[in-house]
């Protein structure tokens, strides 16, 4: 059995660790709340943009807009892959899961003979790919856990330019989808070429109702037919498409930030709980050891006294 003094030292050390994890849990809980608000706050914009694009889009436009260009028949040759990870650790398997998803996707693409430009956001992804010595097209760590639309714009601009120039055939983002604080599956989203959102939502319940089959049944149902459009449907589509791409990147950043806090809170809660369990066990062992020492000392004293008497 371990010595009481060692046990005492371990108990103290675990108590200190538990204090830290408990505090981190509380901090991430409040940060999660705010990050969640940002995710929710970003929704109206995304929804409005998606509605309008869905209304204006028609399948025959694909050849006219570079951002809608589908990969050529002989397949995609070069894909930009953006991996979003966190800058900090202590959030369980959060980053490991994201990296695994990215590697899975990379293997899949490379299996099809596609070469990949890797763009990394966040220290964790960077240090992993530095470790594997894989060439990286770009990396940045300055985004942190409060991403702004400007960050997303900076990130997406060069990718859009390369896509339009034809050097990239597709752009995908690996990020943590924020379904809830405990469910944040790593997800791959193709942001270029743009997959137009479906036109099945209507603002304010006015005008004409489009069925959910809006994508198959076309022109007469389209909302754009009832609008005064300035300058023209094409021009509007042309300037809103980049905004849509940017917004998808923004959404990925914001959701990943929220997911990170969720993951950290869960990890820290588990750590705090298991520190508590360990403390229980150690305290019990310590008390038993302490009692054993006392009992032994008593036995020795009694034994000694007996011996003197005799």
């Amino acid at each position: 059995m371990a010595k009481p003094r060692e046990l005492r030292r371990r108990i103290r050390s675990i108590q200190n660790t538990r204090k830290i994890t408990k505090t981190m849990e509380l901090v991430s809980t409040s940060k999660l709340k705010r990050a969640q608000d940002r995710v929710v706050g970003a929704r109206p914009y995304a929804r409005a943009l998606a509605e309008v694009l869905g209304d204006l889009y028609a399948p025959d436009l694909a050849e006219r807009f570079p951002l809608l260009r589908q990969p050529a028949a002989d397949g995609t040759k070069r894909v930009g892959l953006v991996l979003i990870t966190s800058n900090r650790g202590l959030c369980g398997a959060f980053n490991a899961n994201l990296i695994r998803e990215a590697r899975r996707r990379m293997q899949e693409l490379e299996g099809q003979g596609v070469s990949i430009d890797l763009h990394l956001v966040g220290k964790k992804g960077i240090s992993y790919f530095k470790f594997t010595k894989r060439a990286v097209a770009s990396q940045r760590t300055d985004i942190g856990d409060k991403p702004t639309a400007a960050h997303a714009a900076e990130l997406v601009a060069p990718l859009m330019a390369q896509f339009q120039a034809g050097t990239l055939d597709a752009v995908e983002v690996v990020f943590a989808q924020f379904k809830s604080a405990v469910s944040t599956p790593p997800t791959t989203l193709r942001i270029l070429p743009v997959t137009p959102p479906r036109a099945d939502r209507r603002l304010g319940g006015s005008a004409v109702s489009t069925g959910t089959d809006a994508l198959s049944a076309q022109p007469p149902n389209r909302l754009s037919a009832y609008y005064i459009l300035k300058p023209s449907a094409d021009a509007i589509l042309e300037s809103l498409l980049p905004l849509y791409v940017r917004n998808q990147m923004f959404r990925a950043l914001v959701e990943t930030a929220a997911a990170e806090h969720g993951a950290r809170r869960t990890a820290m809660k588990n750590a705090t709980d298991s520190a508590g369990d360990m403390l229980d066990l150690l305290r019990r062992t310590y008390n038993r050891a302490r009692q054993a020492v006392i009992t032994q000392e008593l036995a020795e004293i009694v034994g000694g006294a007996e011996a003197l008497k005799g």
């Binding site: 914009y45 603002l203 304010g204 006015s206 300037s239 809103l240």
Partner: peptide, 18 residues
């Protein structure tokens, strides 16, 4: 700056990039 303005029924939506 940037974005669009939409009027439908009695709703006005200004969706701006900045």
């Amino acid at each position: 700056a940037g974005g669009f303005l939409q009027v439908v029924g009695d709703e006005v939506r200004v969706v701006a990039d900045r």
